[in-house]
Nucleic acid binder design. Structure first.
Lengths: 168, 168
DNA sequence: TTGTATTTTCAATAAATTTTGAAAATTCGG
DNA sequence: CCGAATTTTCAAAATTTATTGAAAATACAA
């Protein structure tokens, strides 16, 4: 397979992959393109490679920067902005985990705390079932939260070798 | 907070949560409703509680059954079908991990295997950058695959206590 | 400054996804 | 079987989400 074709397949399936994870297709595709590009690219490079409009490109680059996955690069003597993606996949994973934990897991745990204190007689099976479910989710959620905290701080090599021992 | 309100909040935020994970709102809401219901419900119960159409209800229940998260229950002497959700959250998580691994991670790893064999001179920085990125993702992906395999087989108590030791 | 290159915004449009509801298919007691 | 109850299907409609492109804002060299 030629590089051009391989690159396109990679970008396209990274885009499809993203849609299963709440990330829009274009954002994932731009990320994929930057991941495999040896040098920083401009907005125009990205527009051309992916055949998307200027506005779309701009918004999604901005979003990738918010996620901490892409950085602006200023090349000396160049007027245009260049963009580059973090290439260390372990760092990318940690960054995504960190953001999603903050945006999704933590608010959910806060809500569950409130919901667990629902009024009513625990002998009522409707109340009991609700409280039991909420408690169960909360317990696992808190565990996940702690585990992910540690993962976010971990070095790749340490992480992998530790897991190898536990999950032998 | 009253049970009715708490239930609605739970269902609604579980639905929103789902949309960040590639699951549609209604499917997640039906799942949430069944999770907190002490007894099995019929399609009509679900339609009424969530204010959704029969077709929508039916399709999403079917999808939840495909995911192994909901079971059909036949009550003796009743013509209608009843539905119930697995209440053990650990089992729910394992089931979801198992399905997503099969549907998303494994196909991605297969693709990366192919893409890694791209033609071209490794001294060309474009080729090198592509191969390095793909290899990096593949390596981490394979590790995740193994880890998740073990997780899927694990008991909750074992899982939690092991992780507590590693991530001290 | 001023003029031009570049980036950003956002209302309008397009595309994708979800939902509806009525018709068709199926199930099952009598 | 028959017929009513129940489930399933799916084309059309509604809704949500993504994309465009042109205008406005900004940045910067001269």
């Amino acid at each position: 397979m030629k590089l051009t074709e391989a690159k396109q397949q990679f970008i396209s399936s990274w885009g499809a992959f993203g849609t299963h994870w709440g990330i829009n297709r274009t954002m994932a595709q731009i990320h994929a393109l930057l991941l495999v590009s040896p040098d920083p690219l401009t907005q125009d490079d990205i527009m051309e490679e992916l055949n998307i409009s200027r506005g779309n490109t701009n918004m999604n680059i901005r979003e990738l920067i918010n996620w901490g996955l892409v950085d602006r690069v200023l090349l000396p003597g160049e007027r245009k902005e260049y963009f580059t993606a973090e290439k260390d996949i372990w760092k990318v994973v940690k960054q995504i985990v960190k953001e999603r934990k903050k945006r999704e897991l933590e608010p959910m745990l806060q809500l569950l705390d409130k919901l667990e204190e629902v009024e009513g007689d625990k002998r009522d099976k409707h109340v009991k079932s609700f409280v039991d479910t909420v408690s169960g989710i909360k317990k696992l959620g808190r565990q996940a939260d702690k585990t992910l905290d540690t993962l976010v701080k971990a070095e790749e090599s340490w992480f992998i070798s530790s897991l190898m021992k536990v999950f032998k």
